[in-house]
C-alpha cells in the first residue's frame, strides 16, 4: 500500500474563493481580497501594514491585539476580517489627530502613558491603550478598582500595571486612592 494514501484522499477539495471585504480603518475605507480564515488581526498587520496592533498569544488571552470595532474594544485575533464587513475599525495608529498646522496631537491616553511611564518593553501598550479607550467609551469604571477589573483582559508581562492604572485614572479623572 502507498504510504501517501491518507494525504491524497484529503486533498481533493479546491480552496474556497477569496472574498472582497470592505472595512473602514481609522476613518479610511479599505477594500481587501481575503481568504475567509484571515483574522482581523492578520488583515491589519499583513495586508494593511498596520503593525501597531500586536500579536501576542493569538488566542484572546493577552489583549495585545485589542482594537475598537464601532467604538467597542475586541480581541482582533479572535474574529475573522470577513465577519466585520462594513464595520469601522480603530487601531492604535488611528488615535492621534493631526491639526491644520500638520502638528500631531496624541490621544490623551497616549500622552498619559508617556507621562506616567506606563510601559517597559511596550509590546502590550497599543492593546492597553485601545482597551482603555474602550473602557472610557463604556463609562462603567468609577474607581481604580474598577479600572483594574475592567482592564484585566490586557496582560503586561513587564508588570507595569500600577503606572497603567495611574495613566488611565488621570485621563478619566478618577481619584488614585479610590
Amino acid at each position: 500500500m502507498q504510504s501517501t494514501s491518507i494525504l491524497s484522499a484529503e486533498v481533493t477539495v479546491a480552496l474556497p474563493e477569496k472574498s472582497l471585504v470592505t472595512l473602514t480603518i481609522n476613518g479610511e475605507k479599505k477594500q481587501l481580497e481575503l481568504a475567509p480564515w484571515t483574522t482581523l488581526l492578520d488583515a491589519l498587520r499583513e495586508y494593511l501594514d498596520l503593525t501597531g496592533t500586536k500579536k501576542g498569544c493569538d488566542h484572546g488571552q493577552c489583549g495585545a491585539c485589542t482594537v475598537l470595532v464601532d467604538g467597542k474594544r475586541i480581541n482582533s485575533c479572535l474574529t475573522l476580517a470577513v465577519m466585520k464587513e462594513g464595520a469601522s475599525i480603530t487601531t492604535i495608529e488611528g488615535l492621534a489627530t493631526v491639526d491644520e498646522n500638520a502638528t500631531v496631537q496624541l490621544h490623551p491616553l497616549q500622552d498619559a502613558f508617556i507621562q506616567h511611564d506606563a510601559y517597559q518593553c511596550g509590546y502590550c501598550t497599543p492593546g492597553q491603550i485601545c482597551s482603555a479607550v474602550g473602557l472610557m467609551n463604556e463609562g462603567r469604571a468609577k474607581t481604580t478598582d474598577d479600572i483594574r477589573e475592567l482592564m484585566s483582559g490586557n496582560i503586561c508581562r513587564c508588570g507595569a500595571y500600577p503606572h497603567i492604572v495611574d495613566a488611565i485614572s488621570e485621563v478619566m479623572q478618577i481619584d488614585k486612592n479610590s
Binding site: 489583549g63 475586541i74 480581541n75 463604556e138 483582559g153 490586557n154
Partner: peptide, 9 residues
C-alpha cells in the same frame, strides 16, 4: 467571566 473584550464579542 472572561474579559471586557471577549464579553463584547
Amino acid at each position: 467571566g472572561a474579559s471586557p473584550q471577549l464579553r463584547n464579542m
